[in-house]
Structures are given as structure tokens and as C-alpha cells.
């Protein structure tokens, strides 16, 4: 088992111990009885069998006991789970986006990050949004998980009880690079968290277009070095002549500002021949025209 690092984890682990405890007891008990019977009533030791049709008393007993036990298990499962669905008022709210194949987070002050930073011992509510297909937001150390469903708002909340860095994994199969859809949550002291909040986001010197490409998970499918991942590489793409498929008809075009902008807004309109249609979603509502221009600007530099 991993570290147990949230208030919720204790409830989960407790119900796990209850259920596994009862189960192991019965598994071992029944197996031993079974093997003992096979040994004791082997035809060498017991050449003549006794026909026993059944016993009402036993049937009642072994209906009643499992009924009782499973209701106990159900109860602990429910009690351990109940707190998960009610986030305390005043919890810090963060929006988590899932898209093929990257998590990103939006803080109340508008900053967008690749990984989560949260204060120790404070409730955090994560609102889950998917931009394309199903994903599932899973923090093993916190024992929690909830699906990110396109078109539907889900959430989870937690209160971290341990400092450190914990993995965030995608648990719902989402296509080719599902197993690489990873992020992390870093739990820090309150003061450190305040400090982190106060620091200005994006202090690096990288091209703003590159920052946008990273933020929007563009680079998980489009490489910068010419290698083919899922979509065409950005390297040398600007000004290149390509054959695209428009409504099932092939035609030749030159990749220019208009094509890049159209491909971001309507990714299925003109698909470069040899690539799959339907995997990319429209970013029309996500990126402004200035941002698209900045991205185009950066792509021009990749020659």
C-alpha cells in the first residue's frame, strides 16, 4: 500500500481491513475444512459414503451469517464513503481539466499549472472537467478517484494530512497514451502555499506560444522534433505543402496562418492525409485569436 495521506484515506483503509479481515478468515477456514474432508473421507479411509440430503438448520445458519456479515461490510463501505460527496464550505476550489493525455489545473486567481500545489490540512475541492473523452482523476495516496466526464460536472474533495509529492494518475482508459497521463499533487505548509500563490506565474523566458502549447496539451500529440506521435509534427510544418482531406475529398494546400487557425478551431475540417479524424477537439472556446496568433508565431520558429 502507498502512503495514506488524506483524511479520507483512513476511512477507506479501515473498511478495507474490515472486509479483507472477514474474507481471509472465511477463505482460510473454508479451504482448510474442504481439504480436511478430502483427506478424512478419502475412499481409502471411508469406503462407504453416508447420504446426507441437507439440513434446514445449517441452511438457515449459513444464510443468516453471510447476510449479517455483508451488511456489516456494506455499512463500513458506506460510512467510509459518505464524507467524499460533501465538500466543506469554504474549501479551496481548483478546476482540473483532463484531455488526451494531460491534466491541467486552474486556480481561482486564473493561474494555470501542470501539477497541483495544495496547503496541508485544508479542504480542497477539485472540480473535474473533461475536454474530450472520459478520464478519471486518481490520487492513490489519498485513496480517491472520480471520473472526468465530458459534458458533465463532477468533483471530489480532500484534506491532505501529510506533506510531500503524490502521484495523480488517469484511471479511465482514454486512448493511446493513457498510461502516460500523469501529474502530481504537492502538499506544503500553509505559509509555503501562500508564498507560492504570491509568486507570479510564468516567470520563465520561454516563448508565450510554447507556453500555450504546453498548457493545452498540444505537445502530447504534436512533436517539435519531426517525430510522428498522433498528429503531424510542428517541425517545419509552416509553409509546407500538404495533401488534406476535406469532406472525404483530397486537395493540396499550403500551411499558412489561416490553416493553423482553422485546424485549431475546426480540427476535423481539413485533416492532413494519413492522420486520424475525430481525435482532436475544437479549441475555439479555449484560445483567443491573439493566443492562436502567438502559437502560429512560435510554430514558424520550428524550421
Amino acid at each position: 500500500m502507498r502512503a495514506s495521506a488524506s483524511t479520507f484515506a483512513q476511512g477507506v483503509d479501515f473498511s478495507l481491513y474490515v472486509i479483507v479481515g472477514i474474507s481471509v478468515f472465511f477463505l482460510i477456514g473454508i479451504t482448510i475444512v474442504m481439504l480436511y474432508f478430502v483427506f478424512r473421507y478419502n475412499k481409502k479411509r471411508n469406503p462407504v459414503a453416508t447420504n446426507i440430503e441437507g439440513s434446514h438448520k445449517l441452511e438457515v445458519i449459513w444464510t443468516a451469517i453471510p447476510t449479517l456479515l455483508v451488511m456489516v461490510m456494506f455499512y463500513f463501505g458506506w460510512m467510509g464513503y459518505k464524507p467524499l460527496r460533501k465538500a466543506p464550505d469554504g474549501a479551496l476550489e481548483v478546476k482540473a481539466y483532463g484531455q488526451m493525455w494531460k491534466f491541467s489545473f486552474e486556480y481561482p486567481d486564473g493561474r494555470i499549472t501542470d501539477s497541483l500545489v495544495v496547503p496541508l490540512g485544508k479542504p480542497v475541492k477539485v472540480n473535474l472537467v473533461s475536454r474530450d473523452v472520459l478520464h478519471s482523476f486518481f490520487i492513490p495516496a489519498f485513496r480517491m478517484k472520480e471520473d472526468m466526464v465530458p459534458g458533465k460536472d463532477n468533483f471530489l474533495w480532500f484534506e491532505a494530512t501529510e506533506k510531500g509529492r503524490f502521484d495523480i494518475l488517469c484511471a479511465e482508459y482514454c486512448g493511446q497514451l493513457h498510461s502516460y497521463m500523469l501529474s502530481s499533487v504537492t502538499v506544503v505548509e500553509d505559509a509555503q502555499y501562500e508564498q507560492w500563490l504570491a509568486s507570479t506565474a510564468g516567470t520563465s523566458n520561454e516563448h508565450p506560444g510554447l507556453a500555450l502549447l504546453k498548457q493545452n496539451a498540444c505537445l502530447t500529440c504534436h512533436s517539435q522534433d519531426g517525430s510522428k506521435i498522433i498528429g503531424p509534427s510542428f517541425k517545419g510544418v509552416f509553409g509546407k505543402t500538404e495533401i488534406v482531406v476535406t469532406d472525404g475529398v483530397e486537395r493540396e494546400i499550403v500551411i499558412d496562418e489561416a490553416y493553423i487557425s482553422r485546424s485549431i478551431k475546426q480540427p476535423n475540417a481539413d485533416v492532413v492525409k494519413g492522420y486520424m479524424k475525430g481525435l482532436m477537439v475544437s479549441y475555439e472556446a479555449v484560445l483567443t485569436d491573439e493566443q492562436i496568433a502567438s502559437i502560429t508565431d512560435y510554430i514558424k520558429t520550428l524550421q
Binding site: G11, V12, S15, L16, I19, M73, F74, F76, G77, W78, M79, G80, Y81, L84, S136, F138, P140, R143, M144, K145, E146, A171, E172, Y173
Partner: peptide, 10 residues
């Protein structure tokens, strides 16, 4: 059980 499934699901 709900609590444990939340961790072990998928």
C-alpha cells in the same frame, strides 16, 4: 463496498 471501490475502481 463504496469506500474501497473509490480507491480500487479501474
Amino acid at each position: 463496498a463504496l469506500a474501497t471501490d473509490i480507491h480500487l475502481h479501474d
